[in-house]
Design a protein around this nucleic acid. Structure first.
Lengths: 167, 167
DNA sequence: GCAGCCTAGTTGATGGCTCAATCATTCCGC
DNA sequence: GCGGAATGATTGAGCCATCAACTAGGCTGC
């Protein structure tokens, strides 16, 4: 599953010098992180999808809108908050419009812009899904972790974000 | 982005009692974990895909095969190791066959079973991709973390896995 | 006031993933 | 050994994400 799996540094010339292979301990840490992240994300998405019909990606859109005054956001701002590309968001909002949970509205200040607005039906759908989601997060994350581990999770996450959010 | 976003416990009756909403600190820890996991996974996949033409999912298949004596595995065993459904793996192996990196072979002991076998071309493709992948993992993960954080990452991952791997 | 560039957002083609249905083979009880 | 259940794997339909191309509106300098 990982870069160094087939062993010791080999002798191929690399554009950027010798690869910095992982040692056995790093390997274990990396795989534990990778597997756990994949499994938890997958599990949260599946439980939410199967019990409410809303995928985690769509849920994030509804939440982002609900947290905003007026329950509306510019498409690009919404995309950023959902870690989504604009194209992906545009498609997703179209599907949410079909369900009647979001509607589009042209932006008054900028004729190019669009506002995505959460409808009352959308808010209700979100309210119905939220307890399911929080229960999954509790079950697969917080219930498994000591307070120290929760703190470590936050520290780790924030450290990684500091690097990646900067682009 | 999260379950408790729209605030305090409300009064809707829930099948399983009052939702166990996250408090502000839990909220921060949860979002830090979620965003960082999504961003890191996304980044690793994009860098690998763009620089080598192999997605992370396909890369995992090649690695799993390469680590095995004879460089072959039963389809279902391979699926388990890649955290993949059988259907997904079957589709993926078909694509890898088209590239000439894997071939299928009926299993001698069980006529229903199939073996996925890594070809020499497949092994070469993996060797070419591995340095790119390990560099991404270093850049976005290990280079950002102290030894204590790496240890915490491993501890956290293993704890979550213990719960999820058990199903 | 318009030419050229930039920004916001959408669209459609392509490929991957999920789910349910299906096929082939093996296992099991008798 | 034979009928039925279980197992291993594949298939196809439908949905979602990605990428590149495109539309439309705004901005800037002259």
């Amino acid at each position: 599953m990982t870069a160094v799996a087939h062993g010791a540094p080999n002798d191929r010339a690399r554009p950027a010098g010798e690869p910095r292979w992982l040692d056995a301990e790093e390997q274990k840490a990396w795989r534990a992180w990778l597997y756990s992240a994949q499994l938890v994300l997958d599990r949260l998405d599946r439980e939410l999808t199967h019990e409410t019909g809303i995928s985690h990606a769509y849920y994030e859109i509804l939440v982002a809108l609900s947290e905003t005054p007026g329950r509306m956001l510019r498409m690009s701002e919404l995309a950023d908050r959902c870690l989504s590309s604009r194209s992906r968001l545009s498609h997703a909002v179209s599907r949410l419009e079909e369900r009647g949970w979001v509607r589009r509205q042209v932006c008054a200040e900028d004729g190019r812009g669009q506002l995505a607005v959460l409808t009352d039906d959308g808010f209700e759908a979100l309210e119905a899904a939220a307890p399911v989601h929080v229960e999954s997060v509790r079950t697969h994350l917080f219930d498994q972790l000591s307070p120290e581990q929760v703190e470590a999770m936050r520290d780790l996450g924030e450290t990684l974000l500091r690097h990646l959010a900067a682009r």
